[in-house]
């Protein structure tokens, strides 16, 4: 995989103020038949994006079809990414071009999957999330700043900001393009020792 990192992002954002957006919406099951990680972006939110699955009939009221909104930050309602464990959801968001997803709550497996694909999940308070929706909808050109080293997200126009949490190990990975598998492979001796002392099953 190409070496990616996340550091500091300034971008306009796409608002999706719907709660409990599940991974079946992010990428419907019928698009999970690929055997590579590429190309999922075109089917991102497929059934919200097109009328009757027809690419020539984009649904006008869906935000990805609205040229007013754009950018590499997706701002979404509470409990984003619930449902299936499909990593394809994270691949689709990243392939479409998103680098950050902001919500007031993320489903656990989605959060892991996102982090493993250099897509940064930024969890903010309900209040801050509503503020974000408001300013973006009032002015779609509003720029949002997301800083991973400093762990803050800021609305540039108003200066309002909030800190976000990320576990230190994952932060290191994202900043330095580390990979969990390389790390685990480096523990071969320790794993072998564990296996030898635990041959119970």
């Amino acid at each position: 995989m190409s070496k990616r990192t996340i550091q500091h992002i300034v971008s306009t954002a796409v608002p999706l103020p719907i709660e409990n957006i599940d991974t079946d919406q992010i990428i419907p099951a019928r698009f999970l038949k690929a055997t590579t990680r590429e190309g999922f972006g075109k089917n991102l939110f497929r059934d919200w994006r097109y009328e009757n699955d027809d690419e020539s009939r984009p649904k006008k009221d869906f935000v990805l079809n609205n040229p007013v909104y754009g950018g590499c930050i997706l701002v979404a309602g509470k409990n984003f990414g619930c449902g299936s464990s499909r990593e394809h959801a994270a691949w689709a968001l990243a392939d479409y071009g998103f680098q950050v997803v902001v919500s007031s709550f993320f489903a656990d497996i989605f959060k892991n999957n996102a982090l493993n694909n250099f897509l940064l999940p930024v969890q903010v308070s309900d209040v801050f999330l509503q503020q974000l929706f408001q300013v973006i909808q009032q002015n779609p050109k509003t720029e949002i700043e997301v800083d991973l080293p400093g762990q803050y997200i800021r609305i540039l126009a108003t200066g309002e900001e909030e800190r976000f949490d990320i576990n230190p190990y994952k932060k290191e990975c994202l900043l330095n393009s580390y990979d969990d598998i390389d790390y685990l492979l480096s523990l071969d001796e320790v794993i072998r020792a564990y296996e030898q002392s635990h041959e119970r099953v």
Binding site: R37, N112, I181
Partner: peptide
């Protein structure tokens, strides 16, 4: 528990 594909690889 369920895991994503990167974790399947791990």
């Amino acid at each position: 528990f369920g895991i994503g594909t990167s974790e399947v690889e791990q």
